[in-house]
């Protein structure tokens, strides 16, 4: 057993070091795999705020991932084609600047989370799960049937966005961007967790009636958590679109929502680096097992079933000492 702090440090160092070495050794594929892990860890860190701290089992976080992805894809494709997004009432141009795209993606993700959250947080339990799933599915079908941006086929945009001073098409530089944003999100998670807000959010998970009788309405706390959660996941979506230089309705699919939950549970629910460990485990497993068998998800399903039924607490929970509150 090791203190969780050291485990976290080790995990993040490893995630930074492996692609660096791989890049020097001329293995861009490994760098891309690490980038994918960082991006999904970022998306799951967003979900970890709602799910891990707030106990809100959102089965619809693909919605925010997809909103972020489409924001990036649509802005980039307009800019590359020199077509303005709109000419009335204002001229709005597309952009390839990541520093412009990110705030827009985050804002739209937050807006989507505000609307979906305001409706679905009126309920709880099974209802909440079904409603978040349904709203994500709504966006999925909308993306499929709206032909302007590729519909079912998705929207390719050929070049990654630009970042001042960096060549984003260089895998290791793009990884650096994603890793830095992951660190920022983990820092945010950590601060929120320890702040008044995190205390209230965790209380809302454990005993909402008590929180209410102390003077804080659980709905407000949960809604803000859901919005922040959606924002971070949307940012991850924008990065994922840039990684692939392609967005498609698959980013909005229920399967992706399920995967995000799986990442968190594999790593450890509510743990700071749970999403990172979970994403690393999941995509490494996909990489190796996927190469061994086309049907690796069958075996993964059995494994997951075993973890849920017999081994709880995730990988971080198994490796780290029980975290004490200090």
């Amino acid at each position: 057993m090791i203190p969780e702090r050291w485990l976290n440090l080790g995990v993040l160092t490893l995630l930074a070091a492996v692609p660096l070495v791989a890049s020097l050794a001329g293995q861009p594929f490994t760098v891309t795999l690490a980038t994918k892990i960082a991006i999904f860890a970022l998306a799951a860190t967003g979900l970890n705020i709602a799910l891990g701290l707030g106990g809100l089992v959102s089965f619809g976080h693909a919605a925010f991932f997809g909103v972020g992805g489409y924001a990036c894809g649509i802005l980039a494709s307009h800019a590359r084609n020199y077509e303005p997004l709109s000419t009335w009432p204002w001229d709005i141009e597309g952009t390839t600047q990541m520093l412009t795209i990110w705030p827009i993606a985050v804002l739209l993700g937050g807006l989507a989370a505000l609307v979906i959250g305001a409706l679905s947080l009126r309920t709880s339990g099974i209802f909440f799960i079904m409603i978040t799933l349904a709203f994500a599915q709504m966006l999925y079908y909308f993306a499929i049937s709206w032909p302007t941006y590729g519909g079912e086929d998705g929207l390719p945009f050929y070049l990654r966005g630009d970042f001042p001073g960096l060549n984003t098409m260089d895998p290791i530089q793009f990884f650096g961007i994603c890793f830095a944003l992951l660190l920022a999100a983990l820092f945010t998670f950590h601060r929120l967790h320890r702040a008044r807000f995190g205390l209230s959010l965790e209380a809302a998970r454990q005993n909402p009636e008590r929180l209410r009788s102390l003077g804080i309405r659980p709905f407000h706390v949960r809604l803000l958590a859901f919005v922040i959660s959606g924002m971070i996941t949307a940012l991850a979506g924008a990065l994922y679109a840039d990684l692939n230089r392609f967005v498609s309705p698959a980013m909005l699919s229920w399967h992706l929502s399920g995967e995000l939950i799986v990442l968190i549970v594999l790593g450890g629910v509510g743990r700071l680096c749970g999403p990172v460990v979970g994403a690393a485990a999941y995509f490494l497993l996909e990489h190796w097992a996927g190469a061994a068998s086309e049907y690796w998800q069958f075996w993964f399903g059995l494994l997951l079933l075993g973890v849920v039924l017999f081994a709880r607490g995730g990988i971080v929970g198994a490796l780290a000492k029980d975290h004490t509150h200090d």
């Binding site: 089992v57 399920g258 939950i261 799986v262 069958f298 059995l302 997951l304």
Partner: peptide, 21 residues
Amino acid sequence: HLDQVLATFALILVFSEGTRY
């Protein structure tokens, strides 16, 4: 509910991939 969601999500993977096989 989280455990229920995960376990039955795992079942989907097992059934879908099994059927595809």
